[in-house]
């Protein structure tokens, strides 16, 4: 892998230049407690300190609502709506979310690639950013705390700048076309990088392995520890909508008033909603709130063959953004009887 360095003095120039490669999206503070990614005009608005955004970066690849087809009812024809997609750059993705995107790739880009997803994925440049965990983060348990693929550039914080890992041909291109911004990495930088990584590891609250979580979950689904948690849940879907790897969508056909044309749209769905498990004939595979509640735990802890990790990347969003204060990780720890807290 190629490593270069950028100093703090040049970082805003760098961000400004990223705009040459597409529309720039980065985290900004949107309210007292929340950050979200927005299109950036003034690069000084970017919130480097953010930990999580209200909407995961998946919103740029699977739109919350998007048009799929235009349908000509009279002719009985339809065509895919393939709107022009401009290149774009997402700045500041943390490791967990980059792995999350790769998980989405595994789902959307299989033998039958999802054309809407693929076109956006091809147009997007990913610039990663290192982070220090808060009490909600547990990517160390899910083994998604460090990424080796899935980004074009990845910036690691140093006392006086960033150590940059170059992860793709596009990444090389950006570095090569802006050599005036970058310099070689020296021994001090490497020491600082190592120290940062060590400090980061020490900050994670939990330790242990998640690998058998799915099985323990399946075996304890009837357990009464779940009763109280199910009772607390609103079924509001905030947990899945803020999850970087949730990928369920619903599809609806919307006709025009004269009945000649229609459009097909898709929009984010959630297994926390009753309609998610409803099939033709009126049967519902997840007819109770308990079924729906547990479905998420089972789904997120399934094994993703593509990466050898679970579908959960340990970002903590589902807990942070749950209005009912339901703690996903603590619930999992309860059934695993794991209580160890390293640093409190």
């Amino acid at each position: 892998m190629r490593y270069v360095k950028i100093t703090n003095e040049k970082i805003y120039d760098f961000l400004e230049r990223l705009k040459n490669y597409g529309k720039l999206y980065a985290p900004v503070k949107i309210s007292d407690k929340f950050y979200d990614r927005k299109e950036i005009e003034d690069v000084r608005e970017i919130a480097f300190e953010y930990i999580r955004t209200l909407m995961p970066a998946k919103k740029y690849f699977v739109s919350p609502t998007e048009k799929m087809f235009e349908i000509d009812i009279e002719k009985g024809e339809y065509k895919e709506t393939l709107e022009n997609i401009e290149p774009f750059v997402i700045f500041g993705m943390h490791a967990c979310e980059i792995v999350g995107l790769r998980i989405l790739d595994g789902v959307y880009l299989d033998k039958y690639p999802d054309i809407y997803y693929k076109r956006k994925r091809d147009a997007g440049i990913i610039v990663g950013l290192s982070c220090l965990p808060d009490e909600y983060c547990f990517c160390n348990l899910t083994r998604t705390d460090f990424v080796d693929v899935g980004f074009d550039l990845f910036l690691h914080e140093l006392p006086d700048g960033y150590l940059v890992r170059v992860g793709s041909p596009n990444g090389h291109k950006i570095v090569d076309e802006n050599t005036d911004l970058f310099e070689e990495v020296d021994k001090n930088d490497i020491d600082a990088f190592r120290a940062f990584e060590e400090k980061r590891q020490e900050m994670f609250k939990w330790e242990g392995s998640f690998d058998n979580m799915r099985y323990i979950l399946e075996l304890t689904m009837e357990d009464e520890v779940w009763d109280e948690e199910v009772e607390k849940c609103f079924g509001c879907g905030n947990c899945t909508n803020t999850c970087p790897t949730c990928r369920c969508y619903d599809v609806q056909d919307i006709p025009d008033i004269d009945g000649k044309k229609a459009k097909r749209i898709r929009f984010w769905d959630s297994c926390q909603f009753r309609g998610h498990g409803l099939v033709a004939g009126g049967h519902n595979f997840r007819g109770t709130k308990r079924d729906r509640f547990l479905n998420r735990y089972i789904c997120k802890n399934a094994y993703f063959y593509g990466l050898g990790t679970s579908y959960c990347v340990g970002c903590g969003n589902c807990t942070y953004f749950c209005p009912a204060n339901i703690d996903y990780l603590k619930n999992l720890m309860k059934i695993r009887s794991m209580t160890e807290v390293k640093n409190g």
Partner: peptide, 15 residues
């Protein structure tokens, strides 16, 4: 058959 929260989240409004 789903709550307002779904649309709140899809629009990115702070909770």
């Amino acid at each position: 058959d789903y709550p307002v929260c779904s649309e709140c989240r899809r629009n990115g409004y702070p909770c």
